[in-house]
């Protein structure tokens, strides 16, 4: 082996592949077979990673419109009350001087999904078009996006709890509306998009920010 500190080479370039489930190293020619340890299908990169990730991302962007324009729930006291959208709910909380809670809901329901979609778009675009960027930063960005995305489900859970709790007939009554369905699917799709995206593609395309040049020969053949 040549010194690995100066030459960064991927496992695939060296004829190896990593099992995606149990992380056992296999030879590249075993691609398509099953891992002898965990039985998972062996592949060196997620199949159709980019197309799947794009598809889920674009679908989630389209659904983000109805998710924000349609009401998510209706709060009726003594027969009165109007349907609320996500933004409406946040504004309502802010009006009542519940600043912290309003901010939490605003971040979870609007800021996080929007940032996640932007981040995924940046990642997919740079990989798709081979743009030169800081690869380590992009990996960091992906990790944050992947971790934080699930917190957007917060508003959905709040609706679920309120709907179950406030069922007092004509006195007070909360019901869910179909904006919530759209929003839940938005969150689901962004999570699928992140899962479909193969982080190794970030590193496959560019090696520009590495101190070692990847053209350096390795005499392993």
């Amino acid at each position: 082996m040549t010194n690995l500190k100066t030459t960064f080479r991927s496992a695939r370039d060296n004829g190896y592949l990593l099992c995606s489930d149990c992380e056992k190293l296999h030879y590249l020619h075993q691609e398509g077979q099953h891992c002898d340890r965990c039985g998972a299908h062996l592949h060196s990169r997620i199949a159709n990673s980019m197309s799947l990730s794009w598809a889920c991302l674009i679908a989630s962007m389209l659904l983000f419109l109805p998710a924000n324009l349609l009401p998510i729930m209706t709060f009726k006291t003594f027969g009165q009350g109007e349907p609320n959208t996500i933004i409406g709910g946040v504004l309502h909380l802010l009006e009542q001087d519940m600043l912290m809670i309003g901010l939490v809901v605003l971040i979870a329901s609007i800021v996080v999904p929007v940032l996640k979609m932007i981040a995924l778009t940046i990642l997919l675009c740079t990989v798709q078009f081979g743009l030169q960027t800081n690869l380590r930063q992009k990996t960091m960005m992906f990790r944050v996006v992947e971790w934080i995305g699930r917190w957007s489900m917060l508003d959905i859970f709040v609706i679920g709890i309120l709907v179950a709790l406030v069922q007092l007939g004509s006195i007070a009554h909360i019901e869910g509306n179909h904006g919530a369905t759209a929003f839940a699917i938005v969150v689901l799709l962004t999570m699928f998009s992140a899962i479909a995206f193969d982080t190794r593609l970030i590193w496959d395309n560019g090696t520009s920010d590495l101190p070692a040049d990847s053209t350096d020969h390795k005499d392993d053949s």
Partner: peptide
């Protein structure tokens, strides 16, 4: 022969 090597699951870097 593969036990002394490992690849990174996130960037596919092959290391010892």
């Amino acid at each position: 022969t593969l036990t002394h090597l490992i690849a990174c699951h996130e960037c596919d870097l092959l290391i010892e």
